[in-house]
Each structure stands twice: as structure tokens, then as C-alpha cells.
Design a protein around this nucleic acid. Structure first.
Lengths: 212, 212
DNA sequence: GCACAATTCCGAACACTGTCAGGTATTCCG
DNA sequence: CGGAATACCTGACAGTGTTCGGAATTGTGC
């Protein structure tokens, strides 16, 4: 019976099932990557985890890179959601700290996701330049928030990106689970704001530029 | 004839030859890594490059990680040599910039070496914690130079490490061969100095601490 | 000079990886 | 029910790091 009404037709159900399996594979890939590291993810293990052979996974993803890509997309959406979940309050410094800390928390709470999203460390895999740029731009919420803060320094996004990813990488590499570097995020946010928008920090007459 | 005088005995010659081959292997490993990427280095290719089978390489290094380790050590010595080659001159800001730029130049001139030395991105390989810590500490020349600059802020090494590696990674990933991020190293050095040792920058009365 | 010992080096193989080719079983449509 | 599409499998290929066992080379002590 080919239902034309509210119930899904066979083809729709087929597509739905396919999409569900794809999601299940990606989810299993996350679990596996979190357990064994991003480079420890193998197609055979992944297949076993969803109840099929590795070769069958290729019915849903053309290659391992496509799985990485799906993971990247999912991680990126989680990232956006997390960064936008709590609107910042307070003065400029408080808001800068807000985003810096939120980014830091997001990354350190799941190092594998951080590695996939913001470090380019998987041998064959390169996220599409656009999505990567978007992720990096979103990193410091440059577009909206920085403009809203009145920051017009064109180097602000780059500096923010570099400092935050640097601190995060050091935290994950040298003090996983600790709080050694989290404190520094605070100082970094203040430092950065003082550099790219000193007027927002203290209403005193601006000091002479330190640039050469 | 077992010479006891100046000429090398057989055993010595043996050890010397062994050391020479080891050096040749490490050198070939660098060439190969630079050509194909650090993860593209294979034992078979490496063996072929020095005129032997991959299995024979194991007569000189117990594992691939031991080769990485030898590369790490060599790279670290190059790093120290480079950083100490030119003594800094001028005021505090000029000297901070000197080291920041020298580090940046060292890293961007050979991304593979940078990756091996300062990023922990090789799946199985972990440099010994001591050597890694030494490399990171040396990164900003914390021990001698920073003390000489009168910087006593305990967070200074960590912040310097994070900011410089962050900037370098971004340069290499997003603008290889360009000069986009080199400018920012300048600002970062000034920014950092202003944070960890404001007194060295301007002799004006210190502003209130920005820390929470 | 010659036997002994240590050191290279190599061929074969193991367990692993991502991936492709083909065949079979299931599922859905008309 | 027949036909078509999809899902899943077995088998295999080329690559990886690494181990084993034997053969060739080299240096030493007698």
C-alpha cells in the first residue's frame, strides 16, 4: 500500500533508515575515537561496533575521510550551539572572558573533538576551507560579538585564534584534566583586549601605539 | 695489528661506522619527512634511501619511535643553536621581539621540524617528558634571558609558549610561505611583555592589576 | 691462517590498515 | 509474483610497523 498521506512511503522509510544508520556510524566513530584516539579509529572496529563488516560501512560513506567530514560538521554544530547557549553579560572585559572561557571549556572537555575541529592533524583529511575558516572565525565569535564590542582591529581574530588554540593545546598536552592553564585564559583575554581595544578597558586617554 | 696508539682499533672503527650509519638514517629520515610529511615517513622508503631493506634499519634503531626520538634530539640541538646564535640587543621590548621572531623564523622555515619538536601530533610517539619540557622552556628562553630581563611572573613561560606556538601553527596551516602572521609576532611580543612585565616597557607608574 | 663471535643484512611472514570487486541475501515497488 | 535496488558479505590487494631465522660479512684471539 503506497500511502500518500501522512505515513511515510517505502522510499522515505528507506532513506530514513539510511540516515539513521549513518548517524549511528558517526556516533560510533566518536565513541571509538574518544576511546582510542583520533588516529586509532579503524574501519574494521567501527564496523564491528555498528554490527557489520568494515566494507559495509562503505555503503554509507564513500571513504574514511567522509566520516571525518561528517564528524567535523557535527562537532562544528555542537561548537556553535555551545558558544551561543549563554549570552555574555557585563562590561567588555567580562564578555571577552566569557567567550574565551567558553571556548576553552568546550575544547578541553573533549580533546578529540578539539583536535578534529581546530587542529589539522589527521594525515589525509582536510576539512573544506570554507567550513574550516568558519570554525576558526566562530572561534572567537568574531563576526557578531567582536563587532558588538566595538573591536575593529583587523588582527583581532587572528590573535584571538592563535592565543586561544595555543593555550588550549598546551592545556590538553601538558595538564589534561588539570586546571593549570585555565587561569591563563583569563589573563590572555584581558591581555588581548588591552591590545586590540584598549579603549574598552580603561577610559583613560589612550597610550601611544606600541607598534613599530 | 691492534694499534694502541692514535689510530682507532677495530672496535672503535666498528662503533664509528655504526654511528655514521645511524646519522645517515636520521638524515634520510629528515629528507623523507620533509618531502612526504612526518606521517608519510615509512620504514621501507627510509631503508631504500640508505641502501638497505627496512628490516636492516632495525639493526640501528629498535623501533620507528627511536628514530623519531633521534630526530627530536637533533632538532632540539639545532633549535638551541639557532636561538643562541645571535645575542639580543636593545631594550626589553627589542629583546623580547628578538626571541619571538627568531623562534618564529626557526619554526616556519621547517614546518616538519616544528611539528616534531613542539606539537605532539605523531600517533605513537611521545618525546620523553624531560626533553619535551626542556624544549618548551627553551622556547621562550625562559631560564636565562627572561630572568635577565627581570621577568619573574611565573606564568610568563606558559603564556609565551602558548602564544608563540599558536601563532606559528596558524601561520603554517593557513598561510604557508606567506607573511600574514609574522607581523602579529611583533604585537604578541609587546602584548606579552606588557602583561608579564609592564615595568620594563614604560617607566610610568604601574596601572592596577587586571587580574580578578 | 683459522676458528669463534658479533654484527649486518635479507627473505619470509604476521598482524594490522584503508579500500575495491563480486556475489548473495534482503527489501521494496508495480 | 517478477524485477530492481539496496545491504551486507567474502576475498583480495597494496600498504604499514615489526619479528624470526638464516646467511653473509667483519673483527678478534689463538
Amino acid at each position: 500500500m503506497t500511502a500518500t498521506g501522512l505515513t511515510a512511503t517505502g522510499l522515505d522509510r528507506r532513506a530514513l533508515r539510511r540516515e539513521a544508520t549513518r548517524a549511528e556510524i558517526v556516533s560510533a566513530a566518536w565513541d571509538l575515537a574518544r576511546a582510542t584516539g583520533l588516529s586509532g579509529l579503524s574501519m574494521r572496529d567501527l564496523g564491528e561496533r555498528v554490527g557489520m563488516r568494515a566494507q559495509s560501512v562503505y555503503s554509507y560513506f564513500a571513504s574514511k575521510d567522509e566520516i571525518y567530514d561528517a564528524m567535523f560538521r557535527q562537532g562544528y554544530e555542537e561548537f556553535i550551539g555551545w558558544m551561543d547557549a549563554e549570552p555574555p553579560t557585563g562590561d567588555a572585559l567580562a564578555r571577552a572572558r566569557h567567550f574565551a572561557h567558553r571556548f576553552f571549556q568546550f575544547c578541553t572537555s573533549d580533546p578529540v573533538r578539539y583536535q578534529l575541529l581546530f587542529l589539522r592533524t589527521i594525515p589525509g583529511f582536510e576539512p573544506s576551507p570554507e567550513s574550516y575558516a568558519v570554525a576558526l572565525t566562530a572561534l572567537g565569535r568574531m563576526d557578531a560579538q567582536m563587532a558588538e564590542l566595538g573591536i575593529t582591529d583587523p588582527d583581532a581574530p587572528d590573535l584571538t585564534t592563535a592565543i586561544l588554540t595555543g593555550l588550549t593545546s598546551q592545556q590538553i598536552a601538558n595538564d589534561p584534566g588539570g586546571r593549570r592553564w585555565e587561569r591563563l585564559v583569563d589573563r590572555a583575554a584581558a591581555m588581548l583586549l588591552a591590545e586590540v581595544a584598549p579603549d574598552l578597558l580603561t577610559p583613560t586617554p589612550r597610550r601611544r601605539s606600541r607598534r613599530t
